[in-house]
Amino acid sequence: MTSEPPARALFDQALIEEATKKSGLIWVRGDQAPAARPLWHVWHDGAACLVGDGPGEQPLTGLTDGGAAEVAVKSKDKGGRVVTWRATAHRLAPGSPEWEAAVAELKGKRLNAPGGEEITARWARECAVLRLVPTGVAPPPAGSLAEPPLPTPATTRSPVPAALPRLLARRRKRA
């Protein structure tokens, strides 16, 4: 005999795990953050593991130990939202068995890591390693979630100079 709530909870858990495993980035908004941020992660042992808040690493703005977070997972191929789930953030203590296991997974997925072999020692000294443990699926959002972009020192694209199309046309004729 099966009851409806446990079956729904298992479905939600499977959806969260599969969608998050397949996604390269997750959008995370901590309870202290004004907006969601894209973060790279690794799914390990029933939670999304993140590393950041150190030099050369992603900012974990608004995520505090024991704090709540909302995680949006998008489809890798279509870009649409697959699921939004609630989580509790847990900071892992450097050197603990949980930290070692999470860092081993994160190290394998970290692209272009400065320091190479010394990365785990640097993460232990200078960074935070967090686990986002799912607590349930969030209800679908009402309306558009479009927000203005976060401030950045990056420059925007300037208009194309008026003479550029003519210059490019000349190059094509010569070739």
Rank of each mutant, 00 (worst) to 15 (best):
T20I: 02
T20R: 09
K22Q: 15
K22R: 15
I26D: 00
I26T: 04
G30D: 04
G30W: 00
A33K: 04
P34A: 02
A36P: 01
A36V: 01
P38Q: 05
L39C: 05
W40P: 04
W40F: 13
H41P: 01
V42C: 11
W43R: 04
H44P: 03
D45V: 11
D45S: 13
G46I: 00
G46F: 08
V51T: 12
D53G: 08
G54V: 01
E57P: 02
G62H: 02
L63H: 00
G66S: 06
G67V: 05
G67F: 03
A68N: 13
A68D: 15
E70H: 08
V73N: 04
V73W: 05
K76M: 10
K78I: 13
G79Y: 02
G80T: 15
R86T: 10
A87F: 03
T88N: 10
H90Y: 08
H90I: 13
R91F: 06
A93I: 09
P94S: 07
S96G: 06
W99V: 12
E100I: 10
A101R: 03
A101F: 00
A101Q: 05
A102I: 04
A102M: 06
V103C: 11
L106C: 10
G108I: 05
G108F: 10
L111R: 14
A113D: 12
A113K: 12
T120I: 11
A121M: 01
A121H: 06
R122Q: 13
W123K: 07
W123C: 12
A124K: 02
A128Q: 07
V129D: 03
L130G: 04
L132I: 08
V133I: 12
G136F: 02
G136S: 04
V137S: 15
P139Q: 02
P139M: 01
P140F: 01
P141W: 01
S144L: 12
S144K: 11
L145K: 12
E147W: 10
P149I: 06
P151M: 07
T152M: 08
P153S: 06
T155Y: 02
T155F: 05
T156P: 08
R157M: 12
S158G: 14
S158Y: 09
P159F: 06
P161W: 14
P161M: 14
A162Q: 12
A163Y: 15
L164H: 07
P165Q: 13
